[in-house]
């Protein structure tokens, strides 16, 4: 493998992160926001893994890999909480987007 291949993967991760970031800020639908959040997370994990392949021995550094596994579980939990909140919000109000202003 070319020694700079890691860079391609890492940059792809950064771009995914950017797309997700944009989605979080500018998608109004809450489920899309959840997807954007996961995209952002996936991008970060790709950066972690890509940068861990630079070990001279050839075996990737296990520490970032383990951190990604932990990070995935955290992301799953956060996604679950968000979806639960969305379900409850929908049941209570019928909203699928966050309202700009609420009446008192």
């Amino acid at each position: 493998m070319d020694t700079r291949t890691f860079f391609l993967y890492a940059v792809a991760g950064v771009v995914l992160f950017g797309i997700g970031f944009h989605g979080i800020l500018f998608c109004r639908n809450l489920v899309r926001k959840v997807l954007a959040l996961n995209l952002m997370g996936a991008g970060i994990f790709l950066v972690f893994v890509a940068l861990s392949t630079r070990a001279p021995s050839g075996t990737p550094d296990p520490v970032p890999q383990a951190m990604v596994l932990t990070g995935i579980v955290v992301a799953v939990s956060a996604t679950a909480l968000m979806l639960a909140l969305i379900r409850r919000l929908y049941r209570e109000t019928g909203f699928t987007e966050l309202p700009c202003d609420l009446e008192d």
Binding site: V14, S52, R54, A55, P60, D61, V63
Partner: peptide
């Protein structure tokens, strides 16, 4: 990311 060296052992 580009400025990172292509060999880095980290904690491996």
């Amino acid at each position: 990311v580009w400025t990172f060296p292509s060999e880095f052992s980290g904690l491996s």
